[in-house]
């Protein structure tokens, strides 16, 4: 059975179709999940896509946290379900306390869309297992509120425990503390990343295909765990 990866659509989600396309191109089956439907439909993993859920009119991701589907998702995350939050999805994960810290307004106060170089720092999470530590990848970044912040103790802990999954290279595009672009939880099943791997899965439309690694990682992890077969 092909691994089934759910993609949640909130009102204002924008990159949901892109995330679904990335899942398909990596060899998985994408399953559309709806914010108001408190059911994960037995998917093997979930992507929280980019966008502006509920217009981001309060704090980014703050209202999405209260969507009916999120209660199920938070429980499932604690049970080990693999979850990837991209951009707005990362913001939803921090607002839901599945990941520590917060994403704040870019330090230069502008929305920024650029091809961003990253260095992979962790390949033990289920979403980064296909990478090697030290891999340099180039994927699109586009956000207005992508500055990762946390208190010093949390930052030290993240670094000490090897939970930073990727850092910005060359340019820190938004003032993120310690150049952090993405983090994982201790169990390695929940990952949040600010840049967009789902926009770097085809040569034709992305700067590279470096983003595919996140999606092949999860599919292989699922197969290796014996949860699904290919």
């Amino acid at each position: 059975m092909t691994p089934r990866v759910g993609v949640i659509t909130f009102p204002g989600s924008l990159d949901d179709k892109d995330a679904a396309r990335a899942v398909r191109l990596a060899g998985g089956e994408s399953v559309a999940l709806w914010h108001a439907d408190a059911d994960l439909h037995s998917v093997d993993a979930v992507v929280l896509p980019g966008g502006f859920s509920y217009g981001d009119y309060l704090r980014c991701g703050a209202i999405a946290k209260f969507a009916p589907v999120m209660e199920k998702l938070v429980d499932a995350a604690k049970g080990g379900l693999p979850i990837l939050g991209i951009c707005n999805g990362f913001q939803v994960l921090t607002e839901s306390h599945l990941l520590p810290g917060a994403l704040t307004r870019n330090d230069h106060l502008h929305f920024i869309c650029r091809d961003q170089k990253l260095r992979i720092e962790n390949n033990t999470s289920v979403w980064t297992s296909e990478f090697s530590i030290g891999d340099e990848i180039l994927i699109p970044l586009k956000n207005g509120e992508g500055g990762y912040v946390a208190d010093e103790k949390t930052l030290d802990q993240l670094e000490g425990d090897g939970l930073v999954i990727a850092r910005y290279l060359d340019v820190n595009p938004n003032g993120s503390r310690r150049d952090i672009a993405g983090i994982t939880n201790e169990r390695g099943n929940v990952v949040g990343i600010m840049p967009h791997p789902e926009h770097a899965v085809e040569k034709l439309t992305g700067p590279t295909t470096d983003g595919l690694g996140f999606f092949t990682s999860i599919l292989k992890s699922l197969v290796n765990d014996g949860k699904v077969s290919v």
Binding site: D15, K17, H110, C113, L204, T205
Partner: peptide
Amino acid sequence: TSQYDRYVMGNTV
């Protein structure tokens, strides 16, 4: 132009 999203929808060639 870097303040505009050119990637969303994944079909920008």
